[in-house]
Design a protein around this nucleic acid. Structure first.
Length: 773
DNA sequence: TTAGTTCGGGTTTTT
DNA sequence: CCCGAACTAA
């Protein structure tokens, strides 16, 4: 039991209190992960079966790492039997087992945020609503909020307050959209992120025997980052824990930063009401940061009204004062940070990975990246557009999803005409209408109801071919292993060929990404995971929770690189040196949070999280101007800078102005400000001037003028009189000789030789050819 | 049907 | 500035 000796009294008490409800309030850097790890190890050492432990973490990566650490403590391979993962992935797993009870297929699709937006967009369009008023983002967050509070469409309609809000904003149809949205998800055999929690609640509510089963299975529950759970998650935990009440929640109200996602700090504050005999442990000693950083962070969070009082302290050294750097522009800010890292690293023999750059919004990474690249500092961006959200990856995954679950509407729409196979918008609209009329899915229309579809025979054939192709994939799903299936689909759909043909740099990256995905599947195929009992997994096994993977789940962080990420993504991480950039009003705190006290307090907690990531040194930077939407805007330093107790931070008057700093600055003193404004003007001017510039290849005016007389002549006479051998005039190519005409009306295609440009194939119904007598 | 272009509108944060 | 939607030409 020597691991217990590595804990301080508060930590040890939390680890040893294994029976009954408890809450651990863990200040930043107070060894929370250590407590969780040792607690689970301790349970297992005391004889608890790992299969009876459910541990809910914030990312899958955190789960993976924790399992590794537990393994080290207890030895052996038992740790891998613990149920550990995010709420979403754990309950997706359970829902797949129980899906039939909810009339869902067990291979249901999981719609990510983009899929769900796309579905909502179609619905808004089909209902002929104003998409300016019913912006999908707004509708989505409204529905998401309802789901996270377990409000069904029916309950939504019956809720006077919610309906009142919609009434006020003039968006009374949201409830109708909500109904239709859920219906369409159901018809597609799909769940969105919120459904994974909502449906779990339905399952546990309507099927007592299922609830009973999991209550017995999960005798010990642990929930990390409890301050970030929403009502839906809260209720799942409460129900599962009701039998044994061996529930341990860990969190820090000061680090609650997901309110916008429905997270509710009240879950922490109300814990004592649900479990009056609970035990509370406060971890207040910080092992991570210097005294300066801890004190500075405390002084900031003290400005919040809503909080559980606690006193985070540390035995660590005083450390450096917090620096503040002002730059002229966002680009200068990037250069400052990059140069500062460069110098610090070289002077003090530091590794790249001891530095992190944190920002409020993803778009701020660009200036940082450019500056780092300029002086060859390796970096890695966490978060941002995750690998699985890239277009080419989503396209291929859509084929996979469709193969596994042909009812999946969003996947079908994504690939039915990609690569292009002549099934266009018009056809898809007809299919959608037919599906709505028959109360069926798009797939059912094209696979069973093709005869009744009002499309021409060519299109019908194309649809039939598509159906045959997807069916043939489906037929092989159980016989091929994941990789063979994945590769077969990528090749035979033509998707791989299409991307290979694109030789632009972006196209190359896309192709590489696809290769990377296939490699990942290959690795998965050959990974010999215990749950597949020595057999090769199928593609459906790969798909199970691929939608739930995020960038943070990629585990290649042993490289020596500077880390760049949003503050949200940095939660739970720590770095010796941290730069918090973009410390400006309207950016951090975000403009959108300024009007609401609780939202501003959430921004402040976010700042608290950022500050407490640093072990040794924190640097705040801001710029006096910044590009937004491609235009330069003036910006003011963030109020948060002043909220730090002045004794821990560089005095503002001691700030050098950028002009005093020489470092090659004199060359372009106005680089950030004046000239870029000018260049915009210049660009704009250039656009207008271009038509007047000398020797344009095609005079734009001429094009127009020459068209006008052609319209009547071409339509009236062209089709009849253009035959092989005749002379014609083309608006753009000039005089030419018709070599051949093929195809039947109205799709005749002429091959014409123009002395100016050579041989051309032209469709007569489109190309305006005037016959010459 | 499609490819290519213009135009307008959008930036928090994420499972 | 960067994206997708709408428009236009073939």
């Amino acid at each position: 039991m020597d691991y217990l000796d590595q804990l301080n009294p508060a930590q040890r008490a939390a680890v040893e209190h294994t029976e009954g409800p408890c809450m651990v309030i863990a200040g930043a850097g107070s060894g929370k992960t250590r407590v969780l790890t040792y607690r689970i190890a301790h349970l297992i050492n005391k004889g608890v079966d790992p299969f009876n432990i459910l541990s809910l973490t914030f990312t899958n990566k955190a789960a993976r790492e924790m399992k590794e650490r537990i393994s080290k403590v207890i030895g052996g391979t038992e740790a891998r039997n613990i149920w550990m993962g995010t709420f979403h992935s754990i309950f997706a797993r359970i829902l797949r087992v129980e899906a039939e009870k909810l009339n869902y297929p067990s291979n249901f699709s999981i719609y990510d945020s983009a899929d769900s937006k796309s579905l909502l967009k179609s619905i808004v369009k089909e209902m002929a609503l104003d998409d300016k008023l019913y912006k999908v983002g707004f509708v989505q967050s409204r529905i998401s909020k309802a789901k996270n509070n377990l409000i069904s469409p029916k309950a939504y309609r019956e809720n006077a307050e919610i309906m009142g809000d919609d009434e006020m904003s003039g968006r009374t149809k949201i409830v109708e959209i909500y109904y239709e949205y859920n219906l369409r998800l159901f018809k597609s055999g799909a769940m969105d992120f919120d459904d994974l929690l909502y449906k779990t609640n339905v399952l546990l509510r309507d099927f007592p025997e299922v609830l009973h089963k999991y209550q017995h299975k999960f005798k010990y529950l642990l929930v990390d980052e409890y301050q970030d759970t929403n009502f839906s998650q809260y209720l799942i935990v409460k129900k599962l824990a009701a039998l044994n009440e061996n529930l341990c929640v860990v969190g820090d109200d000061a680090q609650s930063i997901y309110g916008f996602r429905g997270a509710n700090i009240q879950n922490i504050l109300n814990f004592k009401n649900d479990y009056p005999d609970y035990k509370l442990f406060k971890l207040e000693q910080n092992y991570r940061s210097t005294k300066t950083i801890v004190a500075a962070a405390n002084s900031v969070i003290g400005k919040n009204r809503d909080q559980i009082k606690k006193k985070v302290w540390t035995d660590n050294v005083d450390g450096d004062i917090i620096r503040v750097s002002r730059s002229l522009s966002d680009n200068e800010e990037g250069l400052f940070v990059a140069n500062d890292i460069f110098t610090d690293r070289n002077n003090n023999q530091l590794s790249n990975k001891s530095f992190a750059i944190l920002y409020r919004t993803n778009s701020q990474s660009r200036a940082m990246e450019e500056a780092l690249r300029k002086i060859n500092i390796p970096y890695r961006i966490y978060g941002g557009q995750s690998f699985y959200q890239r277009k080419e990856i989503k396209d291929l995954l859509a084929y996979y999803r469709l193969t596994a679950n042909p009812k999946d509407e969003e996947s079908l729409k994504r690939v039915i005409n990609y690569p292009a196979r002549g099934i266009g918008k018009t056809t898809l609209e007809k299919i959608t209408i037919a599906a709505a009329e028959n109360q069926s899915s798009l797939w059912e229309v094209i696979s069973y109801g093709l005869n009744t579809l009002q499309v021409n025979s060519g299109t019908k054939q194309k649809l039939a071919d598509f159906v045959t192709m997807i069916r043939s994939f489906g037929a092989q799903l159980q016989s091929l292993d994941a990789f063979s299936m994945a590769e077969h689909i990528a090749k035979s759909t033509g998707l791989l060929r299409e991307l290979y043909a694109d030789k632009t740099p972006e196209g190359l990256t896309r192709f590489e990404n696809i290769q990377e995905l296939l490699n990942g599947i290959k690795e998965f195929s050959e990974s010999n995971l215990p749950e597949f009992n020595g057999e090769k997994p199928h593609l459906t096994d790969f798909l199970v929770d691929v939608a739930l993977l995020t960038d943070a789940d990629q585990n290649d962080d042993d490289d020596d690189k500077v880390s760049l990420m949003t503050i949200h993504a940095s939660k739970g991480l720590e770095f010796p040196h941290v730069y918090i950039v973009g410390m400006e009003e309207n950016l951090f705190p975000s403009q959108l949070s300024l009007s609401d006290r609780s939202e501003l307090e959430e921004e402040r907690r976010l700042f608290y999280v950022a500050l407490t990531r640093a072990e040794k040194k924190t640097t705040l930077t801001y710029a006096l101007s910044r590009y937004r939407y491609g235009t330069l805007n003036h910006s003011e330093p963030s109020r948060f800078i002043e909220e730090i107790d002045p004794q821990f931070i560089e005095a503002p008057e001691k700030l050098e102005t950028p002009f005093e700093r020489d470092s090659g600055f004199g060359a372009t003193p106005w680089k950030g400000m004046g000239s870029s404004g000018d260049s915009r003007n210049f660009q704009r001017k250039e656009k207008y001037e271009r038509p007047a510039s000398p020797a344009p290849t095609v005079p734009p005016n001429l094009k127009r003028v020459s068209q006008v007389p052609n319209i009547s002549t071409a339509n009236a006479t062209a089709a009849g009189t253009i035959v092989a051998g005749s002379q014609v005039v083309h608006a753009k190519f000039g005089k030419g000789k018709v070599l051949n005409v093929e195809g039947e009306s109205p799709n005749e295609k002429a091959t014409v030789f123009f002395p100016s440009v050579g041989q051309k194939q032209l469709l007569l119904k489109f190309a305006k050819l005037t016959p010459v007598a």
